[in-house]
Structure formats: C-alpha cells, structure tokens
Design a protein around this nucleic acid. Structure first.
Lengths: 208, 208
DNA sequence: TTTTATTGATTGATCAGTCAATCAAAAATA
DNA sequence: TATTTTTGATTGACTGATCAATCAATAAAA
C-alpha cells in the first residue's frame, strides 16, 4: 500500500497545486484529490512540507528522465542542443498546471532552503546540458555566455506562459530559442578550432 | 494623514513581501513594519487583497516612471532599445527584495484575476516598448519575434536572479540581452527598408 | 461639536498536526 | 484447518495556533 499511496498523494499534490496555482493548498485538498483522508497523508509524509518536497522532487525526476531519453537519441552536439530545448517545451512540461506548479515552487524557494536546492539543481542541469555541447562548437567563454542566455530565454518563455496572455505556443517557443542559438552560434563562432560538426561524444560526461 | 499612511503601508508591504519572499505575510507584519496597528491597515485598505493590489500597482508605476525617463534620454531606436533593457536591470528593479516581490506576484497571478491583469499590462508594455523601436529597424514579423524573444530573455534573467545561485550580475544580464539583440538584428536585417538609423520618432505613439 | 485617526479586544474561520479507535490482512499458534 | 495475535492501513474527532476582519471606544483635530 505504502508506495501506491505515496505516489497517489504526490500526483494529487501536483494536480491540486497546478490547479490552484499556489502551494497554499490544504492537506485536505490534496488528500481529497487522492481519495484518502487528510490523516493518512500525514501518516505517510509526516508533514505538509515533506509532501511538497517529494512533489518537487518528482517534477524534477520527470524532467530528467525526459532529458536523458531525448539526449540519447541525438547524434550531434547541435542536435543535442535542440533536444534540450525541445524537452523544456515538451507538452508535459508546458501544460498550464505544470507551469503553474513550477512557478509556485520558484516562489517557495525564497523561503524553503530545500526547495531552493532543488531548483538550483534544475538550473545547473539545464546550464550544464547546454554547455557541454556548446563547448564543442565554441570557445569556452562564448559557450558559457550563450548557455546562460539560452537557459534564461527558456525560463523566460516558460514563465511568460504562466500569464496566458498572448500565449506563445510550444512550436513558437522552440523556434525563438533556436533562433537565438543559431544567431549566436553564427556570430560567436568565426574561429572555433573546428567548424565541422563532430558527431563523436566528448570524453567529459554530461550532466542530465 | 491618509495619503501618508497609505504610502507607508504600501512601502511596508513591499518590504515585508520582498523580505519574506511571498504574499503569505500577515497584515500584522505589514502594519508593524509601517509602525501602525493592523486595524489601521484594514481601515485604509478595506482588505488585505486591496493592499496587495495597491502594492503591485506601485511596483508597476515605479517601473513605468523609470522607463519613461530612460526613453526620453535616448535619441535613436537602437538607443531606446538599450534604454529599455537597462531599466529592466536597473539596481532598484534588480534588488533581491524587489525580485522576490515580483516573483511572488507572478505566482499570485495564477489565482487573482486583478493581479494577472497588472502583470499582463507589464508584459505588454515591455513587448510594446521593444517592438516600437524594432519595427523601425526590421520588417514587422521579424520585429515581433525579436521583441518576444528579448522580453522572454529579460524575464528569464530576472527570474533566475531569484535563485541567487551563480548570480548573474546587472552588467552581465544587460550584456547578454544586448548580445541577443545585436546578433538577431544582424541576422534578421538583411533587407529592412532603410538600413540607416532614423533619429526621428515614428508617428505612432510608444507605450511606456 | 463633529469629524478623523487610531487601537485593543474579540470573533469566526481555516488548517496542520495528533490520537485513539476501527478494520482487515497476514502470521503464528493450536 | 480453525483460532488467536500481530501488524499495518485508515479514519473521525479533536486541538492549538494563526489570521483576516470587525467594532466599540478613545484621542486628537477641526
């Protein structure tokens, strides 16, 4: 029972948070959504905070899994960059509820040290995934700046989605980020060591 | 007394929200910060929600004033673009408390229709300010895409600031956004009607 | 005197978290 | 197999704390 209930409660929390657009949801709401009593939620998680932390952990795990899968299918550095972008705007991630949940956790990170840790991990992974492939195509300093810029643009498009005014679609968001990458690759790579694509992986591992 | 108290309470709310990193602050906290009793805060604002709305309104007014000032000093379309960027990352706006407050309001917008309205106004102004000058330099469709991208990058850099991990500084944030603009202006402007700068204002008004 | 500013005390609602009691399934024992 | 014991799952009822909002009373100013 325990693993099933835990999963059900975490999923319920995600749905309720996304729906309500805030972490200020009650244990009762979550428990009701999961079809159990509030007392049971406390029984398994000890506290609301703990349940919330498991929830963000699950969000992060999902994103990582998707990223690993997408990266595995990409053959060139440039293709891997596109894969990272595509995963960020994948329908699952871009669903209004999910966007709202991420946003709520961003806000929560201002107060909860543990929540902040998870978001920092997310930010680092995104940056690192971009950087690993950019470094193959560009000098290190340019690669770092562009990784930073692309990560910011992804987050920005994501956040703006939450306002739901003039909603930029998935495809348009991807195109905008790709444009950025293309334009800056063109600008910044007048003299990388090798202009040719190198389909071989670098020796350094890649954070996922 | 009334105008003074109202201002003191709004300022106090901003500080408390920024400090606490969330809108889940009590009227008591805000009133204490302003040096009055909680009852007085209710007396002047009627409800917590109203005080919060006045608070975001004040944040938005400040940003607009700064933008108007900066735009007035800029002489060319390109300079006005830089002015818009600079204002977004101006020290006042980029202060951790202010960033935290904006983030908290973003999250609140998921639930409060009125808060959302204000943020949509912000998003539209930013987009419109960028678009007005980009349209002078580029064909309309390219201008629109780039305005969207630049706005997203600004918001993204801003949000990422809130995590305070590997904090990108003001200067670096400006540089990153300028790089984006330069790269895309170069890429997208092979054939605008006039390549030359036109220091004259267009006839269309510019939202501020 | 009338109006405005201000507050302490109180109320009513909401919630996280606790706990003792029930129920059911599995394990141990006869 | 039949019976008892143990263990885990589950909940309703309750508690204590927190907070927005109210209001009647006071002080000060006009």
């Amino acid at each position: 029972m325990e693993p099933m209930r835990r999963k059900a409660l975490v999923d319920a929390a995600l749905r309720v948070i996304g729906d309500h657009g805030s972490l200020a949801v009650t244990m009762s709401d979550i428990a009701r959504q999961a079809g159990v009593s509030p007392a049971l939620a406390h029984h398994y998680f000890g506290s609301k905070e703990q349940l919330l932390i498991e929830t963000i952990r699950s969000l992060l795990r999902q994103l990582r899994n998707d990223t690993v899968t997408a990266l595995a299918a990409a053959r060139t550095p440039r293709a891997r960059l596109s894969a990272v972008i595509r995963v960020s705007f994948h329908a699952d991630q871009f669903a209004p509820d999910t966007v709202a949940a991420w946003l709520a956790f961003y806000a929560e990170a201002q107060r909860s040290e543990e929540t902040r840790r998870f978001l920092v991990i997310y930010a680092r992974r995104l940056r690192s995934n971009l950087l690993a492939d950019l470094k193959v195509l560009l000098p290190a300093d340019a690669a770092e700046r562009i990784a930073e810029g692309a990560a910011a643009m992804i987050d920005g498009l994501y956040i703006r989605q939450s306002l739901k005014s003039a909603p930029i679609g998935i495809e348009a968001s991807i195109a905008l980020t790709e444009d950025y990458l293309n334009a800056l690759l063109a600008t910044a790579s007048p003299s990388p060591r090798r202009e040719k694509e190198r389909p071989h992986r670098t020796t350094q591992g890649q954070m996922t």
